[in-house]
């Protein structure tokens, strides 16, 4: 369990940023993951007083505050209308309602956790993160960055017309995923994101014409990733699951097209 000396509820992003430049500081989001770590810090910086807990919808995008909870993502009408069922599907298996009332979108994305359903889902969408100093950059680029002491302020998901579906395999219904897959589609292109391999989610983009059938296309997509073994499953099995689930998501998207 994490221990710290000082709790500071930041009054501005500037204050939070400055506090966070010290190695002995840490940003507290939902505190779900942070809490179970055995770390000792001087200062915990809380962003909850900065009005970052909403979801704003414009014609072009969804703007999700870093402190917005997973439960808000799960039940947000706008998100569920634009991406039918997607956010419900990628959140509903995360422990329980009480947990999702605490865990935040910002914490999930900033942590870039291997097991993150949220990261897997958002990576397959046209998603950007807004960093206090680093500005707005594509989520995929953020995923490749090393951890630094910047602050994730908002997540922006563009309404670029992609349709997306999500699937995961879990040992129990509320366990971490054994594999997490999200596929989105435009006319020509599939964006395939796979997490819990068990490494953090990565994205591959493939054209429909790259393979003859959806099965082959799924295998092509699955080939793009590296898989590893942990107590939940072997790398080999994870690759197999990826092939199966990505194929099924392709097929479901194709069915939707009619």
């Amino acid at each position: 369990m994490i221990k710290f000396k000082n709790y500071v509820k930041a009054e501005s992003l500037e204050e939070a940023y400055n506090l966070n430049q010290k190695k002995s500081s840490v940003i507290g989001a939902g505190m779900m993951w942070l809490k179970v770590q055995s770390r000792i810090k001087m200062t915990l910086v809380d962003l909850s007083g900065l009005g970052l807990d909403g979801i704003e919808e414009t014609d072009e995008e969804f703007v999700i505050g870093a402190m917005c909870t997973l439960r808000q993502l799960e039940i947000h009408e706008g998100l569920n209308e634009y991406f039918p069922g997607l956010f419900k599907e990628c959140t509903r298996s995360i422990v329980g309602v009480q947990f999702r009332n605490g865990a935040t979108a910002g914490g999930s994305i900033f942590g870039r956790f291997g097991f993150s359903d949220i990261l897997t889902c958002m990576l397959a969408l046209d998603t950007y993160v807004e960093l206090y100093k680093g500005g707005i950059i594509p989520l995929e680029e953020f995923c490749r960055q090393k951890f630094n002491r910047d602050i994730l302020v908002r997540i922006r998901i563009k309404k670029d017309g992609r349709r997306a579906l999500y699937a995961s395999s879990r040992m129990t219904k509320t366990d971490f995923p054994l594999i997490a897959c999200c596929v989105s589609a435009t006319d020509e292109t599939y964006y395939v994101s796979v997490g819990a391999r068990p490494g953090k989610a990565e994205l591959t983009v493939i054209k429909r014409k790259e393979a003859s059938g959806l099965k082959e296309l799924a295998e092509l997509a699955a080939d793009h990733f590296h898989y590893g073994t942990n107590q939940r499953g072997s790398g080999e099995y994870r690759k197999h699951l990826t092939e199966v689930y990505v194929k099924r998501l392709f097929m479901a998207l194709e069915r939707e097209e009619g």
Binding site: V36, G96, M171, T172, K173, T174, D175, F176, Q231
Partner: peptide, 24 residues
């Protein structure tokens, strides 16, 4: 219940030792 080759038990919390929930 599994062990590392050093004898550490891996399923040492409810995060890793999965009791069935009401959905299971």
């Amino acid at each position: 219940i599994t062990y590392t080759d050093k004898g550490q038990m891996i399923q040492n919390s409810f995060m890793q030792y999965k009791l069935p929930s009401r959905l299971d």
